[in-house]
Design a protein around this nucleic acid. Structure first.
Lengths: 195, 195
DNA sequence: CTATGAAAATGACCGTGGTCAATTTAGTCT
DNA sequence: AGACTAAATTGACCACGGTCATTTTCATAG
């Protein structure tokens, strides 16, 4: 063995895991997150059902990987863009992320369920992305600067809280996308620019 | 028929519904919300499985009724008490509600999932309780008064958002109850008393 | 009282997530 | 190469939420 400290994982296993992820992503793109069935995934991947659960604790864990990865992309893009110069622009920056998080009720539920890490030893990709998100918001707050009276980290947590709240209320049928944006804008205005 | 506008619901049906609710509450008190099984409920209630689903759209709908009712009690108690005179006292008032909402991960998930009404025509008990909660917070804000620069309703929505955020982060293993309270306190301080 | 139609209740059945003892395969030692 | 061990895979099986055609019960009319 080249490295005695490495726990032995055969490349066959990595390939299988990859087949499962690829099959799942394909099926999701064809249908939706909500409609994904484990049996369909294993059939498309050409493996037995038990194999799925040898690679993912449960269906939710697969979802967390895929949704977390997509959030990571969106947040990275958002972070690459210039720091928003006002609140309207800040909301604009968040639109891609909002679009994904509201694309399906199911997606939002999975995200919320994993937003607080389940256990310290087991911080999943979605919880990680929330940390990233808060850090990004904190950076925005530091550069503007909004709310110099409190720590940028705290400002970031507040933005995150209002971000979630705005999206959650959006799933009420009478609230449209437009309502979401303007609501988020007034939340952030009240949070970031108290008179 | 005494009242031609009343859709006929036999009292037998109301009794059955009551048996189901009573059985469910009993089983929950013996075990937990998470451990509740529909089959156990119908066995305890002495009815067939199909009957359950004639009375509740799905298991979630039953949970919403029971959890919503308990929230209503807690919020009513909270509303009866005097308006908190500072933020520390405000957090103190919220402790019973926090205690229930953090009693089980499953309970919090159900609450979040129903906090934004699913459809305007179908506002469930939990969504109703959130409205009540926000209205109560708005009353507190109006009486103090906190944040005279913005509408009390908006202040209430903010308190609600931070309330949720504090609880969600609490499910991270390294954050204890004490951490929850002090975190909520600093959130509310930053929200209600900007310098 | 009996007939009738609608409300309520029934339970066999199904879909889907998840388990696990048994089997196959990959890497290693002699 | 053959033997040996542990990782990886398999698929029959189970648990549990949810469905629906059929049956039972109730209320009312004649």
């Amino acid at each position: 063995m080249t490295n005695p400290m490495t726990k032995p994982i055969q490349k066959r296993a990595l390939a299988t895991r990859d087949k499962l992820l690829t099959a799942a992503k394909y099926l999701i793109s064809k249908e939706s997150f909500e409609a994904l069935r484990v049996e369909d995934v294993v059939r498309a991947a050409g493996v037995a059902k038990g194999t799925f659960f040898a690679h993912f604790k449960d269906k939710d864990a697969l979802m967390e990987q895929i949704i977390g990865a997509r959030m990571a992309d969106l947040i990275a893009e958002t972070a690459d863009a210039q720091t928003p110069k006002d609140i309207r622009e800040m909301v604009e920056r968040l639109l891609p992320l909002i679009h994904f998080m509201t694309s399906e009720r199911y997606v939002f539920d999975v995200i919320i369920r994993h937003s607080g890490a389940a256990a310290i030893s087991d911080i999943g990709p979605i919880a990680t992305q929330f940390d990233e998100q808060i850090a990004l918001f904190a950076r925005w707050a530091r550069e503007a600067p909004y709310r110099p009276d409190i720590a940028p980290e705290l400002v970031g947590e507040g933005i995150s809280a209002f971000f979630i709240q705005a999206i959650a209320l959006n799933f009420c049928a009478l609230n449209s996308r437009q309502a979401l944006e303007s609501r988020l804008e007034s939340y952030l205005d009240a949070w970031l620019c108290p008179k």
